[in-house]
Design a protein around this nucleic acid. Structure first.
Length: 853
RNA sequence: GGGCGCGUAGCUCAGUGGGAGAGCGCUCGCUUCACACGCGAGAGGUCGCUGGUUCGAAACCAGCCGUGCCCACCA
């Protein structure tokens, strides 16, 4: 270390992440450490595909947690010498991105329709070029060691080829088809959406009972509905076939009020005789159940609500009204005619669009669908056989349950931004051509008048190809050969079906192998008050601000430490704990580095505390590494913290300070430098910046820590005897300090004492300020083997209080242990070693009590 | 309607069959030559409730109360 650097290290008494992080990150990038060669096999290599954030996105806590976990594993494996790739990229996010650009246009007073499709898509690309890398830069602030040179986008050129290849293949197999079917229509985005993008909310509606007159009779059939406006599209009334009340009416007709249409009365099992009157109006055009019933009975499908959420021409006098207006009008008319029997408040769950927040309007619409059952079968088997391991394991069941009941996926969206569906329609022969590239002529009739499908694909259709499309599939690229299947995936549970399950299906169907070996479903970090973190609720906490204030290492540590298998509230305290740990590490390292002699780092224990430290370090390395491997990030972080604070700083460094300041003991500095090197390596996956920066001052440094060897276990350094001896010494030191405190001894006073029994390690007397060479004076108290001698620094009364307290503690313990040992059941049935242990305790307590007198 | 969680110190959370733990907060004491983002010592808990299993339960079982999430086409 040259004089300049030494001076700077001496002066920097606090870890200052703001001054260091950007520089260290730039060094990593320059070193090219994140950009592996496409060599080796997926079995030897380690690869992770990042869940691609939306291009419109800004880094939120979910990304930060997810990223901290992935980076911990990526760095661990890179340091272990594996060829490691972390694939990065962004998602074109159809609806979100289109909405952002449309909003911009509105400010300019232009609509996308006025602009036209081609121009609009150009505008979105321009937006993407300008703002699309924002979130990627934010991942860099976190320290994420992604391969930024291989960044991908779900709409880039190669990706489009992959999507077209997949669409055509699924079409050729008959999985993808076009059909008029009931879909979840989102009036907000004016597009169909999939079942998974629908969320059900409890809503209070009014349940209306309406009388439908029977044809040729004075009787009426009373039906119940929360959506009277849809009656305009009714085409039947259904009753349960077993319902005797209506048996004679089945096959007859009733008359639809307001409209006058004759409605057949049909029997269907779906009808619950116990609900309402047991008669159900059937609206195949606007209700999912009714649609199914209608198809079973061959009913007419009438549509009275348009895609704009307003009543259509078919609604007659109600045409043009909003759904709410039509409802009021219909109810008014029914009331006037005396057909409205009852109105009651009714709470039920109603589908809403997850995208726009608007109430879903079930509509019959011509859309593209993908049949899923064939694709699901191998994806179920792969998880059942643990070829894809999902943990924590309750999520495996959730995955399997959902896959078992999978339904067709509506993949078309009425948007402009996205993968335009590669289907062309011939104007001449009306043929349908599915092709990977735009065809020039119709293969059937040679016509050149071809029109491409207007709709685009669901964004999740392209995301489903992420792990292999990013590696160059459908080409046989070196990247694909080296890194597919990927090793590991972390994800939030909300996209288990939307994304993870579909990747497994597509991976098996196309490259023909599972996309990843391990899926870890992490918990949700909630806002401080326990609500969801959400931008709209204003409950989000900005990870970038946390990084500004406490540093990236602090945030990473905090997030990992607070993560758990259950959802947790965001804990500022844990982030501060991380910041404190970074600072502690920095200062402990300063102590070592500024006092280190010029020696090779090596474990050269000279005293029992050295053997203890090395043994504890071994234990910690094994344990922390094991926790990381089983994705137990919280305990990995806590154990690393505890080692650094407790074992290394509070005890070992305090114990060896005199030896260190002496500067004559080469063995000690060799051991310290060795321990420091291993600690930095161990902590680097969790806290990359501070560890890399400290490493820059380490005399053994031969390159960046990011590619330094991760500490491998060295069982020869385990020493249980040293651990026992030093830990006994630590406990004794703590008891002596507590004794002093209670006896109100001045802090600086050194108390005379002597040892009766086994000599404790040297540090005990020093750290507790007892001198064990006392002679002559009278013992006033015993603490283990230590006999405290009378001196003018002792307040007799305070000592008496202290002794009394200890006596009471011991008496309680003796009582507890005796009672246990007098219990015949315990002595007779508990394992022998448990009983033996209890006997030992009792004896020790009795002995100490006797010593106290 | 079905499923999965959770209820432990003032707060946020670990612990899942043998003496209640961590971080933060709180109290007391420290200008100790790495660090006050520090050091030392403490206080603080009928482990939601009720039963059961067991020599022994915070942990296992049952019921109840409270609370969160996911899935679901009964108007």
């Amino acid at each position: 270390m040259d004089a300049e650097r030494r001076k700077s290290l001496e002066a920097t008494t606090r870890w200052d992440p703001g001054a260091v992080e950007a520089r260290v990150f730039a060094e990593w990038m320059e070193g090219g450490y994140f950009h592996p060669a496409a060599e080796g096999s997926p079995e030897e290599n380690f690869s992770v595909a990042i869940p691609p954030p939306n291009v419109t996105g800004v880094l939120h806590m979910g990304h930060a947690l997810n990223g901290s976990m992935q980076d911990a594993l990526v760095r661990l494996n890179r340091m272990r010498g594996r060829n490691t790739l972390w694939i990065l990229g962004t998602d074109h996010a159809g609806i979100a991105t289109q909405a952002v650009v449309e909003k911009e246009l509105r400010k300019e007073g232009v609509s996308r329709q006025e602009l036209g499709r081609e121009e609009f898509v150009k505008r979105v690309w321009a937006w993407k070029e300008e703002y699309g890398s924002r979130i990627v830069e934010q991942y860099q602030r976190l320290g994420a060691s992604c391969d930024y040179e291989r960044e991908r986008f779900t709409l880039d050129e190669g990706y489009v080829r992959a999507v077209h290849r997949v669409f055509k293949a699924l079409y050729d197999k008959g999985y993808v088809y076009r059909d008029n079917y009931m879909v979840n229509w989102d009036p907000g985005t004016r597009s169909a959406i999939s079942d998974l993008e629908v969320e059900n909310r409890e809503v209070e509606d009014v349940l209306y009972s309406i009388d439908y007159p029977l044809e040729g009779s004075e009787r009426v059939l009373t039906v119940a509905t929360v959506r009277p406006e849809t009656m305009l599209a009714d085409t039947a009334v259904a009753v349960n076939p077993a319902d005797e009340r209506y048996a004679d009416l089945v096959g007859g007709f009733c008359l639809l009020p307001l409209v006058g249409r004759r409605l057949p009365i049909i029997a269907d099992d779906h009808v619950d005789p116990a609900f309402g009157t047991g008669a159900l109006k059937i609206t195949p055009g606007h209700d999912v159940n009714d649609f199914e019933i209608g198809r079973r009975h061959g009913l007419e499908e009438i549509t009275v609500i348009g895609e704009d959420g307003r009543m259509s021409e078919e609604a007659g006098e109600y045409a043009g009204m909003s759904v709410a207006e039509a409802q009021a009008a219909v109810v008014g008319a029914l009331r006037e005619q005396g057909l409205l029997r009852t109105e009651e408040a009714y709470t039920h769950s109603v589908p809403f669009s997850h995208r726009s927040g608007e109430r879903i309007e079930p509509l019959i619409s011509l859309q593209w669908f993908c049949r899923m059952d064939e694709l699901a079968r191998p994806a179920i088997e792969a998880v059942e056989r643990d070829e894809v391991r999902i943990s924590p394991d309750q999520w495996k069941r959730v995955y399997l349950d959902w896959m078992g009941e999978i339904r067709p996926w509506c993949v078309s969206r009425q948007l402009w931004w996205g993968h335009r569906i590669p289907v062309w329609y011939c104007a001449e022969c009306e043929g349908e051509i599915v092709a990977e590239v735009a065809p020039q002529r119709c293969p059937a009739c040679e016509s050149a008048e071809l029109r491409q499908e207007e709709d685009v694909l669901d964004t999740w259709f392209s995301s489903a190809l992420w792990p292999f499309a990013t590696l160059g599939w459908p080409d046989h690229t070196p990247e694909l050969a080296a890194f597919y299947p990927t090793s590991f995936l972390t994800t939030a549970r909300e996209i288990l079906f939307l994304w993870v399950a579909r990747m497994v299906m597509m991976g098996l169907e196309f490259p023909g192998a599972v996309p990843f070996r391990d899926v870890y479903v992490h918990s949700v970090i909630q806002a401080r008050d326990g609500r969801r973190m959400s931008k709209s609720l204003g409950t989000g906490i900005d990870p970038l601000e946390e990084i500004d204030v406490h540093g990236a290492d602090a945030l990473r540590f905090g997030l990992l430490a607070m993560s758990s298998t259950q959802d947790v509230r965001y804990s500022d305290a844990k982030v501060e704990q991380g910041r404190n740990l970074a600072n502690k590490l920095w200062n402990a390292s300063r102590l070592i580095l500024l006092n280190a002699a010029e020696v090779e780092p090596a474990p050269r224990p000279a005293r029992v505390e050295d053997r203890w430290l090395l043994s504890k370090l071994e234990r910690t390395i094994a344990s922390v590494t094991g926790k990381l491997e089983e994705y137990d990030f919280a305990h990995a972080a806590q154990e690393a913290y505890s080692f650094v604070y407790r074992d290394l700083c509070d005890w070992y460094l305090e114990i060896v300070k005199p030896r260190l300041y002496d500067g004559e003991e080469a063995n000690l500095t060799a051991t310290l430098l060795y321990a420091l090197e291993r600690v930095l390596g161990l902590l680097h996956p969790l806290m990359p910046f501070v560890t890399e920066e400290i490493w820059a001052y380490h005399p053994a440094r031969d390159g960046h820590l990011v590619v330094h060897a991760f500490p491998s276990p060295d069982p020869s350094l385990r020493d249980e005897a040293a651990e026992d001896d030093v830990e006994a010494g630590i406990r004794l030191t703590q008891r002596l300090r507590a004794w002093r405190d209670l006896a109100a001894v001045p802090v600086a006073a050194t108390l005379p004492a002597l040892i009766d029994g086994v000599e404790p390690p040297e540090f005990v007397g020093r750290l507790s300020r007892f001198a064990f060479d006392g002679v002559g004076a009278e013992p006033v108290s015993s603490i283990g083997p230590v006999r405290v001698l009378a001196s003018e620094q002792l307040d007799a009364e305070a000592v008496a209080v202290r002794l009394q307290k200890r006596r009471q503690e011991l008496e309680a313990e003796v009582k507890r242990a005796s009672r246990k040992l007098e219990n015949e059941g315990f002595v007779g049935k508990a394992p022998a070693e448990v009983v033996e242990e209890e006997r030992g305790k009792l004896e020790r307590y009795r002995r100490e009590l006797a010593e106290l007198g």
